[in-house]
Simulated scan of single mutants.
Amino acid sequence: METSLWVLGRGTGVVALVLLTVSLCLGIAVRSRRTFADLPRYGVTALHRTAGLTGTGLIAVHVLTLLLDPQAGLHVVDLVVPFAGSYRPFWLGLGTLALELVALVSISGLLRKRFGERAFRAAHLTSYALWPIALGHSLGTGTDVGTLWLNGIAGACLVAVVGAVWWRLGAEFGKPAVRPGATGTDRTVTTR
């Protein structure tokens, strides 16, 4: 049973990282006001929310299984107080910070109308800090640190996020796309 808890805990953590990556990239895509893969903006928004909430659910399973696993040595205080753990305290502390930030982002997203647009946006901007903290946690703790498969997944996630953020910071972000065959002065919005 203990091995099953550890495998489930580690696996859900890795899949949660992938889903947080997808959610962050789709959040940037939503902000661009463009359609993607023939999906209208509301479809991209729905995928963004689904990936984020599913990732959050997997983080809950990740934390719960490792809390129940006696081999992991995780304590309730480790979930609340960053850098207080006995096992790789820095890397575990990053996980605690990521957990707190994902809670903030998720709650602000679910209660967006009650938070107000300004507070929602401010809370959601913490995703840009959440993601690298979560990546650092995944690369610094656990028995899979340094394995080819984990490094490959983390590398693919890194490339996706860096590419999305690069696009987000670019001069063309948020501008209407040019229709194929149109001149540079003939722009149309590709939203539906």
Rank of each mutant, 00 (worst) to 15 (best):
M1I: 09
E2A: 07
E2L: 08
T3R: 14
L5F: 14
W6N: 07
V7T: 11
V7Y: 09
V7A: 08
V7G: 00
G9A: 06
G9Q: 02
R10L: 08
R10P: 00
G13Q: 01
V14G: 01
V15I: 15
A16V: 01
L19Q: 08
L20P: 00
L20M: 15
T21M: 05
V22E: 04
V22T: 13
S23N: 04
C25M: 10
S32D: 15
R33S: 07
R34C: 12
R34W: 14
R34V: 02
T35H: 07
T35A: 15
F36D: 05
A37D: 02
A37M: 10
Y42K: 13
G43Y: 05
G43L: 09
A46P: 00
A46N: 08
L47W: 04
H48M: 10
H48I: 01
T50L: 13
G55Y: 08
G55T: 01
G55W: 07
T56I: 07
T56F: 15
L67K: 11
L68E: 09
L68V: 07
P70V: 03
P70H: 06
L74H: 06
V76E: 02
V77G: 02
V80G: 03
V80H: 09
V81P: 04
V81G: 01
P82Q: 06
F83M: 09
A84R: 10
S86A: 14
S86H: 11
R88A: 11
R88F: 00
R88N: 08
P89C: 01
F90E: 05
W91S: 09
W91H: 03
L92Y: 04
G95W: 08
G95F: 08
L97Y: 03
L97R: 02
A98D: 10
L99K: 01
L99V: 03
E100M: 11
L101K: 13
V102I: 12
L104E: 10
L104T: 12
V105G: 06
I107S: 03
G109F: 01
K113D: 13
R114Y: 00
F115K: 03
F115C: 10
A119Y: 05
A119M: 13
A119N: 09
A122Y: 13
T126W: 12
Y128M: 09
A129L: 15
L130K: 04
W131Q: 08
G136Q: 08
H137P: 10
G140Q: 04
G140N: 07
T141A: 12
G142N: 07
G142D: 09
G142W: 11
D144G: 00
D144C: 00
W149S: 09
N151V: 10
N151Y: 05
I153L: 10
A154Y: 08
G155N: 02
A156E: 05
C157L: 08
L158A: 13
V162I: 15
V165R: 03
V165L: 14
W166H: 13
W167H: 12
W167I: 00
R168K: 13
L169G: 02
A171G: 00
A171P: 00
E172R: 12
K175V: 03
K175H: 13
P176G: 02
A177N: 11
V178Y: 02
V178K: 15
V178R: 15
R179I: 07
P180E: 09
T183Y: 06
G184A: 14
T185W: 14
D186R: 12
R187H: 07
R187K: 11
T188Y: 10
V189D: 15
T190W: 11
T190D: 15
T191S: 12
R192Q: 10
R192V: 09
